[in-house]
Simulated scan of single mutants.
Amino acid sequence: MLYAFAFERIGVVVSDLYFLNPSPLHGQESPERGVRLELRVFESGELPGSLYSARPITIGRPLWRVDLLQDADAAPNTFDRTHHHPGIAGWEPGPRTFVEELSNDPLTWLSDRLTDISSLLDEAVISADEISVADADSLRTAAPEIVGTVGRMLERVWSGELGRPKSDVDAHAVTSVRAGWL
């Protein structure tokens, strides 16, 4: 499932995820699942037809990412693999950055980041000209709705509805799986 919150030039995308990493970090060999949120560049295209035609929308490169992940077999609300990627070069994230506050209370940590845009920009090494004042204000205003969406999606992951491998994949018979939009 994919949710998108688009503003002027940036937006937020949120998706459920399921991973089986062929080269996991030590202690993280089992599959993981959860919710990923990315701050992304958005582009609204020109109308391809009449005033009433559908408008092309491009969700571009990521600027910042947070992964609310945990061992797929762990009890809900464990967040043992929750991390963020403050630096993204092009399409590739930097290394996982584990923060105790993020693992202890991920929704509060996320809300704090989405409402304190200047700290987010500093942390993510994003130039201020990539995010307009209007984008920053819109993101700050939408933060409660975005965080609420993430919370509801986590509940659906924990219930087993989301954050699962595709039905035709036997996660025990393969060495690598990535299921989800992001």
Rank of each mutant, 00 (worst) to 15 (best):
D122L: 13
Y52W: 11
G94P: 04
L154F: 06
G60H: 05
I88N: 04
P76F: 08
F19D: 12
T115L: 01
E145C: 00
L121I: 11
V147Y: 06
G148S: 15
Q28S: 12
L20S: 02
A179R: 15
S118H: 15
V66A: 03
P165L: 03
A142H: 06
S30C: 12
V41M: 10
S53A: 11
T58Y: 07
P165N: 08
E92G: 02
V169A: 05
D16T: 10
D112A: 12
D112V: 09
P76M: 01
P144M: 03
G27Q: 14
E161Q: 15
V35R: 04
S138V: 03
P93W: 00
D105Y: 12
T78A: 14
F42Y: 15
G27V: 07
E161T: 15
D80W: 08
H83P: 00
T97K: 10
L121K: 05
W91I: 10
P62W: 07
V177W: 02
S159I: 10
L63M: 13
E145V: 14
A54M: 04
L51H: 06
R81F: 12
S15C: 07
F98G: 02
Y3V: 00
R178G: 02
V133I: 06
F7I: 13
L39F: 08
E161F: 13
D112G: 03
R9G: 08
H84P: 04
E38P: 00
S15L: 00
L47F: 05
N104G: 08
E38L: 12
F98S: 06
D16E: 01
T141Q: 15
G60Y: 02
R156T: 08
L120K: 01
D168R: 10
F79W: 09
H85Q: 02
L107T: 10
W109Q: 04
E92L: 10
S30M: 13
T175A: 09
D116V: 07
S118V: 07
P86A: 07
N104Q: 15
H83F: 01
W109Y: 13
G94N: 04
D112M: 09
L47E: 08
Q28C: 08
A179W: 06
R164P: 00
G11I: 12
D112I: 11
L68C: 03
V12F: 00
L182M: 14
D122Y: 13
M1F: 12
G160Y: 06
E46L: 14
L17V: 13
N104V: 00
G180H: 09
P93H: 05
A143T: 02
D129M: 09
F98K: 01
R40Y: 06
P165A: 03
G90H: 01
G11L: 00
G180E: 08
F7C: 04
N77W: 11
G90N: 00
P56Y: 09
S118Y: 00
Y52I: 15
D80R: 06
D168L: 08
V125I: 07
I131W: 07
R55V: 03
P86D: 09
G163S: 05
L107M: 10
L20N: 07
T58G: 03
T82K: 07
L114S: 02
G27N: 04
I59V: 14
E123I: 03
S23N: 14
